[in-house]
């Protein structure tokens, strides 16, 4: 059995980009321990690769002085991290009680019909993945779905149809919400 270091690899398969590495190193400086930046690191991996890749987790581990196992254990706890590739558009339908009262079930079945897939599946062209999620904190405008990073509130079936049309034609824009905050002091 080979006891190889976790971080000794010189030829790494696509992990974090140089820019993301720098960003992660900077982010880690906001905390007394590097490990605090692990969620951000995983978010960067997911932003770049579309899902949380093995190489990405190894990179996060070595940059934050963690074992890959520790990174993996964190990644599997939080539901926003996906360890497998997903469609270009990740449609997340909230189905917790307030949304369920507001028609989440019919929204879901409409989506299933429209996309020709069941909850949890991805369209064969890799365009859409349909999942259900728990409360998104937008219950005042049920039903709610989050597509990639964007909330769609009080959605009607007509709206959904229009959106799907539109998405079929265009690739998603890079999500804006992953910007991390930094004070001017450390830029």
């Amino acid at each position: 059995m080979a006891h190889t270091p976790y971080n000794g690899s010189s030829q790494r398969p696509a992990g974090l980009s140089e820019a993301a590495r720098l960003e992660l190193i900077e982010t880690a400086k906001r905390y007394p321990i590097k490990r605090s930046a692990v969620l951000h690191g995983l978010r960067l991996v997911q932003r770049e690769a579309g899902f949380v890749t093995e190489a990405g987790m190894r990179d996060v581990a070595s940059l934050l002085e963690m074992t890959p196992h520790e990174v993996y254990d964190v990644a599997t706890f939080y539901t926003l991290f996906h360890l497998r590739p997903k469609g270009e558009y990740l449609i997340q339908v909230c189905r917790t009680l307030p949304c369920a009262l507001g028609g989440a079930e019919s929204l879901l079945s409409h989506l299933e019909q429209r996309l020709g897939i069941r909850e949890g599946q991805t369209t064969p062209d890799g365009k859409f993945t349909l999942v259900t999620v728990e409360c998104l904190a937008a219950c005042g405008k049920a039903p709610v779905m989050q597509v990639n990073d964007d909330y769609h509130e009080a959605v009607t079936t007509e709206q959904v149809d229009r959106l799907i049309e539109q998405w079929h034609r265009t690739p998603p824009v890079q999500d804006a919400g992953n910007a991390s905050t930094r004070g001017k002091g450390r830029g």
Partner: peptide, 17 residues
């Protein structure tokens, strides 16, 4: 801040800056 809040994070981050 909960992770689902993406555009909210942008707003708050901007305000912090």
């Amino acid at each position: 801040m909960r992770g689902e809040f993406a555009s909210e994070a942008v707003i708050v981050a901007r305000a912090v800056q």
